Simulated assay, not measured.
Amino acid sequence: MDAIDERDRAGAGVPRRAFLGVALGGVVGAVAATTGCSRVDLTGEPNGGSLLSRLRDRGSVRIGFANEAPYSYLDKNAKLTGEAAAVAKVVFGRLGVPKIDPVPADFGALIAGLRAGLFDVVGAGMSITPSRCKAVLFTDPEFNASEAFLVPRGNPAGLMTMEDVARTNVRLGVLLGAVELDVALKSGVPESRIVRFADQPSAFDGIAGGRVDAVSLTSISLRWGLKQRPHLNLEVTPPYRPVIDGQEFIAAAGAFAVRPDQSKFVAAFNTQLHGLRDSGELLALQSPFGFTESDVPAPELTAEKVCQG
């Protein structure tokens, strides 16, 4: 991974996200409209698929990403960096695929782009959810992040968990397509008090400008975002794990995704990922992007388990 200092990271992904995301999002939409994503044959390759063989023959992999720091984004030299990018470079290198071709897309268009064949793999720190598991096949998690809130300094509403949001009159900001919306609704936060933002910078602008009273995201994303904008009179609350109906809700177990017919690829990817996790290399790759030991997934946390809900 190309090293970049904190000043380079500070604005990485922000100006490019809107332009590149919208541009490729339009392409994905056009493909979806003409081919009909729901009609794409998602089980076209028997016996677990041949994606890995094709990637090895080609010598490269097309990775769809959302240009969102600190997961996968373009640095000032238009080179792919971030947590998921760092993990991908090592894993694919060990799988015999030396080159990564980044393909930017709006986060909400990543699954459609994968299904339409615009890229081979989604590598954007995408959270595994039961609904997404119906459309794509996930690797085991590369991280399991806690949730938190971005709030005015001093946390005047005393927010610590989503239940606190539900019992107050707080207006909550979430990102379009992000899992935090599900957490909020399942925790009893009324739809009328939820404001959706297109991306992290607009959510930060929203709370700074008074449109919302709090923003819900992973603690990783919020810490990273606030580090880039320390002048804002805001703070990040302590991390927490959502509890729904008395059970811990896995809200942010991030993973890579491929088409559902590529189980052989996922098995090979998981072997390398587990090796990185068990050796401590995984945390070493992730820590420059704000990840901590608590974000490393436990061995028993598999994609299959998270997909079951």
Rank of each mutant, 00 (worst) to 15 (best):
R16Q: 12
G93V: 07
V90L: 06
G108H: 06
D213K: 10
F291E: 04
V103S: 02
N77G: 15
A124M: 04
S60N: 00
R94T: 08
M162S: 15
V189T: 14
P70M: 09
V195Y: 15
F197H: 12
I207L: 04
Q262M: 05
P141D: 05
P98T: 05
M1I: 10
K134C: 00
V61T: 02
C307A: 13
L222S: 06
L226R: 07
I111H: 01
L301Y: 13
V296A: 10
H274G: 10
P102C: 08
L24W: 00
G26Q: 04
P104Q: 05
N233E: 07
G154N: 11
V122S: 00
F256G: 00
D295N: 15
G158E: 04
V183P: 05
P297Y: 13
A157K: 10
P230K: 08
A116D: 01
A148P: 05
C133K: 01
R94W: 10
V87W: 13
K76M: 07
S131V: 12
K305R: 15
D199P: 06
A88Q: 03
S219A: 15
L273N: 04
K89M: 07
L95S: 03
S221Q: 15
M160P: 00
A145S: 13
D41R: 06
A66Q: 02
D182H: 14
Y71Q: 05
S72T: 09
P141N: 03
I100D: 03
P260G: 08
G96A: 10
L80M: 06
V103R: 09
L80Y: 12
S192D: 14
S53N: 03
P15K: 10
M160N: 14
A255W: 06
A33S: 02
E142C: 01
R241Q: 15
V179N: 13
E281H: 09
V212L: 06
V40H: 01
E281F: 06
Y240W: 11
G206S: 09
D120I: 00
A148N: 02
I100L: 14
F19C: 01
D8G: 14
N47G: 07
L175H: 10
A184Y: 12
A166S: 15
R277S: 09
S72W: 05
S202Q: 15
P201C: 15
A178H: 15
A23K: 04
R62A: 09
E45K: 06
A208W: 03
V258E: 01
T218G: 12
D57S: 10
S60K: 01
